[in-house]
């Protein structure tokens, strides 16, 4: 079932090359064509590629779970760390920004505001950085086995998604503990997470392809991520700081709100916190980024499918 449908790749490769005939009768490419042989490495058409990926869904899921399990397998507390890590993170952020820096004056229920932002942002950040390493860090796997390469960035995102589900449990508990009430809006949370996951998959596919050839990306990525963190209003309200305090024009704030990470953070805050003021068009922005990133990401990644593995 995993046979490549090579029509497109053949066309891209400019047809068969004129090799020296080994036995002196006819070019090998023609011999191969006459017997219906296909290029060993060829890019399947996009629908065929998606079908192959669907056939490998068990591998993707098992690979993601296995990575999560093996991550904590050497520690004494084991899988408990999946819960402890987000809890400790939340405690540190609250201590740092809530108590010491005092960023919380104008924002109601700052702990919920901060922790929601942090968890939502961490999900996107870790998916994207994982995706950037997913091809370059798995060359031995790519050089040994056959599977649609998109399975790797996808598995990295699913791994982070599994981690996020645990974080969300911690988040719900914290939000309830900080005097928010459960509302009907909570039913929309899975939809928000789905949209964010679509964006994360797309973004990690793009970075997987870039990271496969651009070695310096892993050095650069932490700085990009930190800039993104500050631009997304994780621990401050963009409207307050950018327009009111810094005196920048309103369009700067609007542009920052339109960036995908900020959009998903704001959406989650709207759903979880009654005191939070909803942004206009927030759903449209979130849906746009999800669809745009997913389709664009798959297309961009698939375009180089046969080149992964050269290093």
């Amino acid at each position: 079932m995993s046979q490549p449908e090579s029509a497109i790749a053949d066309a891209q490769a400019g047809g068969p090359s004129d090799g020296t005939p080994a036995k002196g009768q006819e070019p090998l490419a023609e011999l191969a064509a006459r017997h219906g042989l296909r290029r060993a490495i060829a890019r399947p058409s996009l629908p065929a590629y998606l079908r192959q990926l669907w056939e490998r869904r068990h591998f993707v899921m098992t690979y993601a779970t296995s990575r999560n399990v093996s991550k904590y397998s050497n520690s004494a507390l084991g899988q408990l760390w999946q819960v402890l890590t987000p809890l400790l993170n939340a405690a540190i952020y609250w201590l740092m920004f809530g108590l010491i820096l005092g960023a919380s004056k104008d924002i109601e229920n700052y702990p919920a505001f901060l922790i929601t932002g942090m968890f939502v942002f961490t999900y996107t950040q870790r998916s994207v950085s994982g995706g950037a390493k997913s091809i370059s860090g798995n060359l031995s796997l790519i050089r040994a086995l056959h599977f649609p390469r998109a399975a790797l960035p996808l598995a990295y995102t699913i791994q982070e998604f599994q981690q996020l589900l645990i974080s969300m449990g911690v988040l719900f508990a914290l939000v309830l503990a900080t005097q928010e009430a459960v509302t009907w809006y909570w039913l929309l949370i899975p939809v928000a997470l789905l949209l964010q996951t679509m964006f994360n998959v797309g973004a990690s596919l793009v970075l997987a392809r870039v990271g496969a050839t651009a070695r310096d990306l892993n050095q650069l990525l932490p700085f990009i991520m930190r800039t993104w963190l500050y631009a997304s209003g994780v621990f401050f309200s963009i409207g307050d700081k950018v327009v009111d305090s810094a005196g920048l024009p309103q369009w700067v704030a609007d542009a920052m709100y339109a960036n995908p990470a900020a959009a998903y953070i704001e959406l989650m805050r709207d759903l979880l916190m009654q005191t939070h003021e909803p942004r206009p068009y927030i759903w449209s922005v979130c849906v746009f980024w999800a669809v745009f990133a997913l389709i664009g990401g798959f297309w961009y990644f698939w375009r180089a499918e046969e080149k992964y593995g050269r290093g």
Partner: peptide
């Protein structure tokens, strides 16, 4: 690895029947 279709050729090609 090239016959298996796991390493992209720089030039030339490998044609196979099946995977």
């Amino acid at each position: 690895r090239a016959i298996a279709g796991l390493l992209p050729p720089h030039s030339g090609a490998v044609y196979t029947d099946g995977q």
